[in-house]
Simulated scan of single mutants.
Amino acid sequence: MSAVLQTFDLSKSFGGITATDHVDFTLAKGARHALIGPNGAGKTTFVNQLTGVLRPSSGRIELMGEDITALPREARVKRGLARTFQINQLFGTMTPLEMIALVTSERLGRGSHPFRALDRDLELVGQTAEILTRFRLDDIMDRRIATLPYGKQRQIEIAAAFAARPSVLLLDEPAAGVPEAERRELMQTVAALPDDVSVLLIEHDMDLVFRFATRITVLVNGRVLAEGTPEEMARDSSVRAAYLGEGAHA
């Protein structure tokens, strides 16, 4: 499978601390890929470099074969790289309908006031409705986001990222704090996204990782310790010793 996102020799240092250490990484087209590792492994620093929050100390990042290492965040989003955060980045006074319509309108070049056009812009209406349906938000689309359960808020944030039509979607612990029943529904929805959306999941919940991912990269002390299928990672003694523990299972 062709690569949509790659890093080459990517490193980031803060003073005398090396957070990511010569990381070579490839995300394949259509992948359901998980990045795991203990606290302090460098996962968030790595993702922040991918998305332009942090500038690497050295190395290169490519998106669809283009060097994006020096590009600002907004330019990366326009080229198809979207993310969610550990803490929701939502407008609590909006409804899911308004939130999705806003992102969709920006992508379609309709400006930042989509609500005036919702009754006459058929393309905007159609795409917004499709996303609300895909993420099972139809029945709550007119409720204020701040009043909704946390699991639904996480689902809305992923839906909003998807509304940007990314080729790469980075999910930073999307299920953290979400009840188990809602967590399963959330990840089933993500797993069912179109094949042209490649997903990189950063997550601590190993049961969720093994259910979702078809490939796993293990980061320890800023370096890639191992990479492979969930079954390979569960059997890898170095991974078990560093992170999963002897009781790990696929």
Rank of each mutant, 00 (worst) to 15 (best):
H113T: 14
R83W: 09
R144E: 13
A31Q: 06
V47L: 15
G59V: 07
R83C: 02
S58Y: 06
P38A: 05
F85W: 11
F115L: 13
K43T: 00
D142S: 06
P38Q: 10
A101H: 02
I156H: 07
T128D: 01
L63K: 10
Q127F: 06
A41W: 00
I156R: 03
R116T: 14
R79M: 15
E98Y: 03
S105M: 00
E66Y: 05
A41M: 00
T104A: 10
Q127H: 08
L122C: 00
R154P: 05
L132A: 01
P56Q: 08
G151W: 15
D67R: 13
L81S: 03
S57E: 05
A82F: 01
R107W: 08
I158D: 00
I68P: 04
T128R: 05
V103K: 01
L122R: 14
I100R: 10
S58Q: 15
R83G: 02
E123F: 04
R110N: 11
E157F: 02
R110D: 05
I156A: 04
Y150P: 07
S58A: 12
R136C: 07
P38S: 04
F135K: 06
T128F: 06
V103A: 15
L124P: 01
L90C: 04
E66I: 04
Q155D: 00
E123D: 14
N39L: 08
I145Q: 02
L102M: 14
A117T: 02
L108W: 09
A163Q: 07
K78S: 12
R55S: 14
